[in-house]
């Protein structure tokens, strides 16, 4: 009988816990990303493994090194660096040189995450910061897209534009993109058999990951649904007004980085609101900005910038969506 109480614990209530932890959440996210990784290997070959491994390893090493330099506990056990590495890799074109992926990973972890104070304190999604830095630093390498070679066999630097890019560049020079709808069928978009960032193409695999996240309560439906909904409604509106120049909504939904962004990036806990209504606003805002960039912006795709811009609004959204406190007559206006 353990009568010796020196092994007993005094701690504040509650003395029960859901059993979930940051580490488990991150592990679930990693697992949820696996179908998309498999799909990308299928379509883009070993390049996706090369970039994924580069990013993940660089992120882990960078995190460990920075934590050590800052004389803080090592933070790699929480696995968040792995998630950042995976997400960054998923946002890169398959042909990107390895050293650029290293630069992006370093920027994501060192500047965007650890300099803000590490997990929980970063204002912006580190993976997206890494991607955007690469995009503005190496615009050519970041917009050179390989043709998926599931059917064609290993490619010899055959490049073509992403669906959104092809559409935008064609119209920019005043011509309708020839053969667009034959090249990109709904089936190929759902499967992921199209050019694009290595993890963003396979909608089916991403949805499977999303279901895992929802089931394990790592995300709620608010942000993805609001994001998809806003994009769908706006795309539908644009298409109705001018069906020639605007893609049908299904292409806006399936052909860019929307599924990867809405399911895995816009739902990053640290950089998104804590209230349900705030999450809804966040998702809708992402959708709005994405569509504005796609329609009028210089880039064909706007998911990354949309999420980063909304990240910066998160504190404000949190402030204005405070729940009504039980027993208070009406919401107090935030000071």
């Amino acid at each position: 009988m353990s009568e010796n109480p020196s092994t007993w614990v005094i701690s504040p209530s509650p003395h029960a816990h859901s059993g979930d932890s940051v580490q488990r959440i991150m592990l679930t996210v990693i697992l949820a990303l696996m179908p998309a990784l498999a799909a990308s290997v299928l379509f883009f070959g070993l390049d996706s493994l090369r970039l994924t491994a580069t990013c993940v390893v660089t992120c882990i090493l960078a995190e460990a090194a920075v934590r050590r330099l800052m004389k803080r506990d090592s933070g790699i056990a929480d696995l968040s660096a792995v998630v950042t590495g995976l997400l960054l890799a998923f946002n890169l074109p398959p042909t990107l040189p390895t050293w650029m992926a290293v630069v992006g990973s370093l920027f994501a972890i060192v500047i965007a995450k650890q300099l803000y104070g590490g997990i929980g304190y970063n204002l912006f999604n580190p993976a997206l910061v890494g991607r955007c830095v690469l995009l503005v630093s190496f615009p050519v390498a970041m917009t050179t897209w390989a043709t998926p070679h599931y059917f064609t066999g290993p490619m010899d630097a055959v490049t073509m534009a992403t669906p959104l890019g092809a559409w935008k560049t064609a119209w920019a020079s005043g011509q309708a993109p020839a053969g667009f709808f034959d090249l990109f069928t709904t089936t190929s978009l759902l499967l992921g058999n199209r050019p694009g960032c290595l993890g963003e193409t396979s909608v089916i695999a991403l949805v499977l990951g999303g279901v895992i996240l929802l089931w394990r309560r790592c995300i709620t439906w608010h942000i993805p649904l609001a994001y998809f909904g806003t994009v769908a409604v706006m795309a539908f509106g644009f298409h109705k007004l001018d069906p020639v120049h605007n893609l049908p909504p299904v292409y806006h939904l399936l052909s860019g980085g929307l599924f990867l962004g809405a399911i895995f990036m816009a739902t990053d806990m640290v950089t998104t609101p804590v209230t349900r209504s705030g999450m809804f606003i966040f998702g809708a805002g992402c959708g709005l900005i994405t569509m504005l960039i796609r329609k009028w912006g210089g880039y064909p795709e706007g998911v990354s910038f949309a999420i980063l811009i909304m990240n910066s609004l998160t504190p404000l959204i949190n402030r204005f969506t405070r729940p009504r406190v039980f027993g208070h007559v009406r919401k107090e206006t935030p000071a």
Binding site: P5, S6, T7, W8, V9, I10, S11, P12
Partner: peptide
């Protein structure tokens, strides 16, 4: 003597 462990702030 410490009789128990403390797990808190």
């Amino acid at each position: 003597t410490r009789t128990t462990l403390y797990n808190g702030i």
